[in-house]
């Protein structure tokens, strides 16, 4: 059952992105930045946690999850340790994915040549 939920949620987020791309002059870069902000906003109002428990990977695969991770890290840090916790925690939860992305980008760019 969770597979159907994952299909619906992830599909709807991607369809929303496609609608934005088709009807405006925004580039994929704009779109991703916008979706991260939307993810942080949804997380702020507590909607993203419901989405995650309802659809699992359907909400954790799209880029909106990055905004959610940033927000939850910052907010939990703030509750724990005030401003210090906020500053320490803002990148803590999402650093795994970003670190792997940077390392992979470096390795791939060193070992391959761009095709033209």
């Amino acid at each position: 059952m969770i597979y159907i939920h994952a299909f619906i949620v992830c599909g709807l987020i991607c369809a929303l992105g496609q609608i934005i791309l088709e009807n405006t002059k925004l580039t994929p870069g704009h779109l991703n930045a916008l979706l991260v902000i939307i993810g942080a906003l949804l997380s702020c109002f507590g909607i993203y946690d419901i989405l995650l428990s309802w659809s699992g990977a359907g909400a954790s695969v799209p880029i909106t999850n990055y905004g959610h991770l940033l927000f939850t890290g910052a907010y939990e840090g703030f509750l724990e340790d005030g401003i210090t916790g906020l500053l320490n925690g803002i990148m803590a939860t999402s650093s795994g994915g970003v670190a792997v992305t940077i390392i992979m980008a470096f390795i791939v760019s060193v070992f391959t040549k761009p095709q033209h």
């Binding site: 992830c10 994929p28 799209p62 880029i63 999850n65 990055y66 994915g97 980008a105 470096f106 040549k113």
Partner: peptide, 22 residues
């Protein structure tokens, strides 16, 4: 968009930027 919106798009943007200026 099925590949741009998921994390794959994020990784693609970073890797292709690094490759282009290698």
């Amino acid at each position: 968009c099925g590949l741009i919106v998921p994390t794959t798009g994020f990784a693609h943007a970073m890797t292709s930027a690094a490759m282009d200026h290698e």
